[in-house]
Design a protein around this nucleic acid. Structure first.
Lengths: 212, 212
DNA sequence: CGGGATGTTGAGGCAAGTCAATCTAAGTGG
DNA sequence: CCACTTAGATTGACTTGCCTCAACATCCCG
């Protein structure tokens, strides 16, 4: 029933409009989920990593988003129909999935709040803090954030342009809030100031993400 | 187990940070769900009406949003703990709730896309179309949209200001796209043009909304 | 018939978008 | 190992759309 799967960096796991055949559990790597609008704007609805679920059980099997790998990815694929039956027969699993889905709704609330706030500094500060909390390695310094995705990905996730993202990164550096070790590693030197900029003290902890 | 409940226009059903005691199923009226940021910005994450579920089963019982009635509201309240047990014992219900939650995630994707698109005209055009599809009375003309919420609600939902919302309404009227019968009733005179402005041909149908 | 809440309209500033040039880093092949 | 290429990131100058502040209009309810 479960199938191991490997994808190369840049591969498309499924495409907007596809009939979803599998439900995936990611074990390694990073995936971006995005929707393309008719005027070719790309909105990245989320990033998924190890432990996250890709391709939920919704009414329609047709996907609204494209899932594309950012790095090499390993995943466990479950046949969609079989998965639904399995979930139906296992109340505990079903309830856990319901909780996970509900937590995901809340995570989307947080992101909506981010997008609705106009200022770019707020969006980026919040993004950095969320990233820091979500994928910090146990042994690693909590203030060191690895950002595997490029500037275009960040921009399309936060509703900004590449240029603005880059400028705000520069601004943070000049203000001594961060330090850049190359474009993909950021050290948060002044967390309180960043929390202040982001404008929220607390946001719900995210245990497992779901992407559709 | 189920308790009938009535609320007056403007009542708070639950408040951001509260421990959620009930899960509600709305039977009458309209509710706004919003989060207040530390700098007192109000982001309305959604509106809920008859048939929608308010207060899901998430990991933490602490709410992230405030639920406030826009009109008089009737609801059916289920004790949260009992509800969870009941759901656990009824696989079909559990699976249905999972599907509903997953659909809600997708609806939040659509809203994120709205917020990330910069132009106010797009956001409002899309909002009108979504409203039109969601709460059209069977006997009513499909092009007549009732908007029970005020401009401030729309603005805080779309990440705009009251003034901008008002201006765009005016602009639509001048362009012959809509006709206003008072500020709370809009007639969509040119649907194709509005779809074009909104920038999406199709968005997932929404059967039931969930709010947390 | 007031008075408060809600909605509309106008003038001006500013943050982010757009367009374009430059810089950097990572490959790639001779 | 180095010249070349290319994708990605940065920086700069200019423009535009929304926000801000403010005045005014309208509606509703006592």
């Amino acid at each position: 029933m479960a199938v191991g799967m490997c994808f190369r960096k840049g591969d498309v796991i499924f495409k907007q409009g596809d009939e979803l055949a599998y439900v995936y559990v990611l074990t390694q790597g990073l995936v971006r989920l995005y929707h393309l609008t008719v005027d070719a704007q790309r909105q990245i609805t989320g990033f998924l990593g190890p432990g996250d679920i890709l391709g939920g059980i919704k009414r329609s099997a047709e996907t609204y988003c494209t899932a594309e790998t950012i790095t090499d990815v390993e995943a466990c694929g479950f046949d969609r129909k079989g998965f639904i039956e399995f979930v139906h027969d296992h109340p505990d699993l079903c309830l856990n999935l319901l909780v996970a889905a509900t937590d995901e709704i809340e995570a989307q609330y947080v992101h909506s709040i981010l997008l609705a706030r106009k200022q770019a500094t707020r969006r980026l500060a919040a993004f950095l803090l969320i990233m820091a909390r979500r994928w910090q390695s146990p042994g690693e310094d909590a203030r060191t954030v690895r950002i595997p995705m490029g500037r275009a990905d960040i921009a399309d996730h936060l509703g900004l342009t590449i240029e603005t993202v880059s400028r705000v990164f520069g601004q943070f550096k000049r203000q001594g809030l961060t330090e850049l070790r190359g474009p993909k590693t950021v050290i948060l030197k002044n967390m309180p100031a960043l929390y202040d900029l982001a404008g929220f003290e607390d946001f719900p902890e995210r245990h497992m993400a779901m992407g559709l």
